[in-house]
Design a protein around this nucleic acid. Structure first.
Lengths: 332, 332
DNA sequence: TTGAAAGCGCTAACAT
DNA sequence: ATGTTAGCGCTTTCAA
């Protein structure tokens, strides 16, 4: 039974519980002799301090929250999610912390889980995807002085928001370079429609693509709406005034767009002639009907950096790192 | 600032903090008048009780743990994981609980996270996959009187272990029925090699398949090891003494086996003639080079049932449900 | 170096 | 119906 309290140990050792507390917290003011005696007794009885009581005294939870977004399938049902998680866990466990996970479920009438966790101070800090940092959540975090780090670059314009993200400009750049190296010249980027403001990560990918195309003296063709290969071609023809041949390569800005395209073109022989490319690996790529080029992202590193940054905020370290951009590499 | 304590509210209301505590906990012994007054003050000041202090007094954490297994990709990188999770969260949040997630990371030297959480009583109950319930973990849970429910049927022989699982016997049965309905007679099950003891869920799938084949007067052909379609055929020929034609349909017991097969047979025209089937949906199935039949599982329900069962254990309800088997249905 | 005592914020007898 | 008081298990002054 782990019902042992610090008082029990103190009694067994014939000392005051304050003394036991001191060995628990590595206090220097204690004789080697009594420290060893107490440690021995703690081992023998498998004593484990009650972390709740500890938390109450310290006013800490020793827990970091990780909020995820069910609606963001991309970030959840694929390796993105768990590789990042693995990185996060690594550093959290190293710090003797635990991970509280939540989705941003709205509860009918009551508070959302996110709100509850912040308001009740159930965690010492929070990691959350950019998609979940809206104005309301932001204000809540600030009001309750809850340290947080965004995973994915935030689109909110507030100063002082720390985030960790893939370097999407660079990623789009090397992806474009790769397609150029394969001999392609007519490279189209399929970006998807922007409802309202364009997502930052898409905008960055567009930028990286444009830059590299420009460097090679080629024209960038970005398609927002499409529903067939023909649409991609038509756009290109209209925009650039060339004679409307098929693109040699298409960069899809998200997996969704890629799969959408594959759905349209199922069985279309023209597809075979086209190089497809996108961002982030996906374990099923090798089983697809069509090969796909993609950039590789060190997601575990991303998780580690995010958690590390969060801890430096939690511990109020002097000069916490600024926001961090993770570079990507191309697969062969 | 959420620095308000119960004492502050008591002072503002001109009552004792015990009275405030009573309205917090819905105690009946309180006049409508003072209750309303206190509630008003709490609202005005956005008072939120400190859940750690609450936990200390109640000796509860108001947190349920969910342990997952990184090594089990099947249970993690696909919808299995998050649909179950969604069900779990639903009932947890309804109960005003929170979800602590962890992987069973072994820490060099120190305790694993699992161990820490159990020993430190950081949660009131635990949900964990069968793959993680080994003898050591089981004993730890019992020793610390930690309520738990297994997701997936356990293979440990201890009595009184509660679990929630898909009815794999039934699932294999209806899958086999479906293939028979398509006119196939030569149906092979590819089960994969059993290293050590055969996983329970595979054994169940084998059983369901055998039963239905038997009912139709057909011979069951279960292949454990294979590395090509030819191997499947050779086995069939050797076993049944027929002339070694290709199977008309192959049921792969896991997604891994299915993908393995697709890898072998990439570009093999024979594959086109064969119906493939497996368990659980997978969002990429429709993009595969080859159509796949599968059974549908109400995973959200599974999560809800598991969490519900756990709560009845945590709350020491009189007659907690026994282990639960979730039926599956076939997709059309 | 060690002990005594107060306090973290809340609940729960026991009084009144 | 409300107040008083003693914990829950730990940390942390302040004394000794």
């Amino acid at each position: 039974m782990s019902k042992l309290t610090i008082q029990n140990i103190a009694d067994l050792a014939g000392v005051n519980k304050a003394t036991v507390s001191r060995v628990l917290n590595g206090n220097k003011n204690i004789s080697e002799k009594t420290r060893l005696k107490i440690e021995k007794i703690m081992k023998e009885h498998n004593y484990v301090p009650n972390s709740i009581a500890r938390g109450l005294a310290f006013n800490k939870t020793f827990t970091v929250g990780f909020c995820f977004d069910y609606t963001d399938k991309k970030a959840f049902a694929n390796p993105f999610f768990y590789k990042v998680l693995q990185g996060i866990e690594d550093v959290i466990y190293d710090n003797e912390y635990l991970l509280l996970m939540m989705s941003d479920h709205d509860k009918k009438g009551g508070k959302s889980t996110f709100e509850r966790i912040v308001v009740e101070h159930r965690v010492d800090g929070l990691l959350l995807p950019d998609t979940l940092l809206n104005q309301a959540n932001y204000e809540l975090l600030i009001e309750h002085e809850m340290p947080f780090v965004i995973i994915g670059e935030h689109s909110l314009q507030q100063e002082g928001i720390r985030w960790v993200d893939v370097d999407n400009v660079q990623a789009a750049g090397i992806l474009t370079e790769r397609l150029l190296a394969l001999g392609h010249r007519s490279i189209v980027m399929y970006a998807g429609a922007a409802d309202g403001r364009r997502d930052k990560f898409i905008a960055d990918r567009m930028e990286g693509y444009r830059a590299v195309m420009g460097q090679h003296g080629l024209e960038a063709h970005i398609v927002e709406q499409a529903d067939s290969l023909a649409t991609l071609r038509a756009f290109e023809g209209g925009e650039a005034g060339n004679n409307g041949h098929n693109p040699e390569a298409v960069i899809c800005c998200t997996h969704e767009l890629l799969f959408e395209m594959l759905d349209w073109e199922h069985g279309n022989p023209m597809l075979k002639e086209i190089s497809l490319a996108t961002f982030d690996d996906y374990p099923m790529f090798r089983h697809l009907k069509h090969p796909v080029h993609y950039v590789e992202i060190d997601l575990e590193m991303m998780g580690k950096q995010a958690a590390g940054l969060l801890f430096s905020l939690i511990n109020k370290e002097a000069n916490p790192a600024q926001s961090i951009r993770i570079p990507t590499s191309i697969v062969n």
